[in-house]
Computed example of a mutant assay.
Amino acid sequence: MSEKKNGIDKGLIRDLANILNDTDLTEIEVEQDDVRIRVSRAGTTQYVQAPIAAAPAFAPAAAPAAVAAAPAAPQDNKNAVTAPMVGTVYLAPAPGARAFIEIGATVKEGQTLLIIEAMKTMNQIPSPRSGKITDILVNDAQPVEYGQPLVVIE
């Protein structure tokens, strides 16, 4: 049986911590009835702000090898569009389909730049402004954190 103290299920907290270890996630949050529990790893995240959406409770099949490529634009670029949530980024609407954007393309405000899958939901990320794509800072099927720069629009 789970240990409970003041309505908090310690077994649930242990299970969530085990999920973090098993899936290599940095944070997980669950809500049951009127109780919300967030478990995170200290010192492993690069961003200080808390995510808007909870991290998905699954691990990506495999980390892409191309993730190590250094982006051409600095991470603090004021023209960068950042991830509004934690999830997996997809540059095309379906596997094998043409990408939403490419470097040098002109985009309009509201145009879909990419998709972030979070909690098994595909979220289209719209362009916040019109302009020219000067850099794409992520790879297809790459996990992203909240606030991570994704695309630079000049």
Rank of each mutant, 00 (worst) to 15 (best):
I101G: 05
T121R: 08
G87F: 02
T121N: 12
F58S: 14
N79G: 11
A50R: 13
A62E: 14
D34L: 10
A55M: 02
G96Q: 08
N123Y: 06
R129W: 01
R41F: 11
G131L: 10
R98I: 05
M122S: 08
Y90C: 06
A97K: 11
V35N: 08
T121W: 00
Q124C: 00
A80F: 11
V35G: 04
A42C: 06
A105Q: 15
S130F: 03
P74V: 07
D34E: 14
D33I: 03
A53T: 09
I101V: 15
R41H: 12
R41N: 12
R98G: 01
A55W: 04
S127L: 05
P56E: 10
Q124F: 00
P71C: 11
R38F: 02
V48E: 13
P128Y: 08
I52T: 12
V107P: 01
A61E: 15
T106N: 13
T82M: 08
M119F: 10
A66K: 10
Q75K: 14
A53P: 00
L91P: 02
Y90P: 02
A99L: 02
M85N: 01
R38K: 15
S130I: 03
V48G: 03
I125M: 05
F58V: 13
A69P: 00
N77G: 07
E109D: 07
T112A: 13
L113E: 04
I37S: 10
G110V: 09
P126W: 05
P74W: 09
A54N: 12
A105Y: 00
I115E: 04
K78V: 12
I115Q: 05
I133M: 08
V35M: 14
A72Q: 12
P84Y: 04
I103W: 01
V67G: 00
T106L: 09
I125T: 03
Q111D: 14
I125L: 09
A97Q: 12
P126A: 09
G96P: 11
A61G: 08
V86F: 01
A73K: 11
T82V: 15
E117R: 08
D34V: 03
I125G: 04
S40M: 14
A66F: 06
R129K: 15
A63R: 14
I125K: 03
A50I: 04
A54F: 02
T44A: 07
A94E: 15
A54D: 10
L113P: 05
G131R: 05
N123F: 06
Y47H: 11
A54C: 07
T88F: 02
I52Y: 04
Y47P: 01
I116A: 08
I37N: 10
N77F: 04
K120M: 09
R98H: 08
Q111M: 11
K132I: 15
V35C: 10
Q124G: 10
P95I: 10
E102V: 00
A42S: 10
P95H: 08
T44L: 13
Q111F: 06
A66P: 00
P51L: 07
P60M: 09
P51T: 05
T121I: 15
